[in-house]
Write a protein that binds this DNA or RNA. Structure first.
Lengths: 185, 185
DNA sequence: GTCTATATTTGGATAGAC
DNA sequence: GTCTATCCAAATATAGAC
């Protein structure tokens, strides 16, 4: 048996994620990633042989898992507005009440490899579809549900940007309060 | 008299701006900035003695001037909904119909110097105040106008992020169509 | 005012000891 | 599995010729 790992994968992905989310792909230096994880740069290359690219892929996969958990209430038998409210509660945690940026924003800038940006794009698509399904369950037509779901993602991403620009995280929580009404009108 | 300039300041600021907006502060390399402007790196340092930081400051100042132009209809004697529609037309041009990102998003990531982020924050504040004034003119209370104005900026920034993530610029133009109704309800 | 050339630091990545 | 040491490329910035 080899040497025991000093940090488990889940924690590594979470800490890498914070650096990528805050700095973007290009801005996330190996030094910053290394320091956040608590491993030397060379040790990170042992876990991620293809380097920064593999780290970003792992982060997006980990983000996808968190997103699935946040969206899980939407497929429950809860009242739709309540289900959306529960999604919002989980999102508030994932985004530290508006203090953390979203990978859909910061990892889709020019400078990120194309496949990373494509992977982020699929996340956005998946998220919209899940919210649209909830809107349909609330009685909306397919077209109206798609419109509302896209509007919801627009507000989520926009609130995170504005919260960051104004240095006022409360913008995010206030926006979340409007989402049940938007999706389950 | 010295040698004539080969590129005027306005064009330089516009081209630097495109690079900063697409790549963020950290991702905007001197090489990329130099190539976009059509001057060697050393020539950029002649125009901007303190380097990248001065370029970013100049870009934000230039963006502020463009923003003032876009917001100018809001202080005209037009019907408020028409004024907002005119603002939207101008914004569509500034953001190339959703194909260009916003400095409030990409220049506020960790990695940008604090004063650059603060300058961007003041831009956001100014923008919100101008839209709130329009909402007041449309009959909203101060509190309601502030709420609508912030919601409008949230949607603008969010639509740009989602358009980029989905690689679908039309998200931006579709969002713009909703702004007159939002601000001048 | 712009250029070529260069200094210096940081970034991404690898080799090999333990 | 993690580390120190190192390589190479790219990034920021400067010097000095024209």
């Amino acid at each position: 048996m080899g040497r025991a790992v000093s940090v488990d994968d889940e924690q590594i992905h979470a800490r890498l994620g914070e650096v990528f989310r805050a700095n973007g792909y290009a801005g996330a230096s190996l030094s910053a990633l290394s320091e956040a994880v608590g491993l030397q740069r060379a040790s990170l290359y042992h876990r991620f042989p293809t380097g920064k690219h593999a780290m970003a892929t792992a982060v997006l996969t980990s983000v996808e898992a968190r997103l699935r958990q946040a969206l899980e209430p939407l497929t429950s038998d809860l009242d739709v507005a309540d289900a959306v409210a529960e999604m919002c509660t989980r999102l508030a945690g994932d985004y530290r009440d508006g203090r953390l940026s979203c990978v859909l924003d910061t990892m889709t800038l020019t400078g990120a490899p194309d496949d990373i940006r494509a992977q982020a794009g699929r996340l956005a698509q998946y998220w919209i579809e899940a919210m649209a399904a909830a809107a349909v369950r609330a009685g909306a037509t397919e077209a109206e549900a798609a419109r509302r779901a896209r509007a919801a993602l627009v507000r989520i991403e926009g609130a995170l940007v504005v919260a960051r620009a104004l240095n006022d995280p409360s913008v995010f929580d206030q926006m979340l309060a409007e989402l049940p009404g938007l999706l389950a009108a």
